[in-house]
């Protein structure tokens, strides 16, 4: 299968690989996927407690090139957004940006799940209710 140039670029030069302190109150962690499915993403955000802006985002991904690129792109998009804005990131935006083929759409779904899980982890740490994900993926 041919990968788009953007996928190859993110795969070869992944942005924001790394680990944030998962025990920090300012950090939200989303670990999604399963090893036996061939994809595991861990996405972390660090939120500035005065502005509510995501000041850092890191990822580590076990998966194919599209999964790595989706999570790498997600970290790029997350930085500088407010938590509420981040909640709006849609998997189809990732599909479009990376020109993912239909068989790789699940990678973008996983990245969106990782974002929402990380945000909710942060919200719970802050004493807030997690946001219910009402969106259906087809």
């Amino acid at each position: 299968m041919a990968y788009s140039e953007k996928v190859i670029d993110h795969y070869q030069n992944p942005r924001n690989i790394g680990t944030l302190d998962k025990d920090s109150k300012a950090v939200g962690t989303g670990l999604v996927g399963a090893p036996e499915c061939g994809d595991v993403m861990r996405l972390q955000i660090e939120v500035d407690d005065t502005t509510g802006i995501i000041k850092d985002a890191k990822f580590k991904t076990f998966g194919c090139g599209s999964a790595i690129a989706s999570s790498s792109l997600a970290t790029e998009w997350l930085k500088g957004k407010s938590v509420n804005e981040a909640m709006e990131i849609d998997n189809m935006d990732i599909v479009e940006e990376l020109a993912l083929p239909p068989v790789k759409i699940h990678c973008s779904v996983l990245a969106e799940d990782a974002i929402k899980t990380a945000i909710n982890d942060y919200r719970v740490k802050q004493g807030l209710e997690p946001i219910e994900d009402t969106k259906k993926h087809y």
């Binding site: 061939g38 994809d39 076990f62 194919c64 090139g65 999964a67």
Partner: peptide, 11 residues
Amino acid sequence: KFVEGEGLMMG
């Protein structure tokens, strides 16, 4: 172990 085959093929 701990790397995924398709990602590895790409690498």
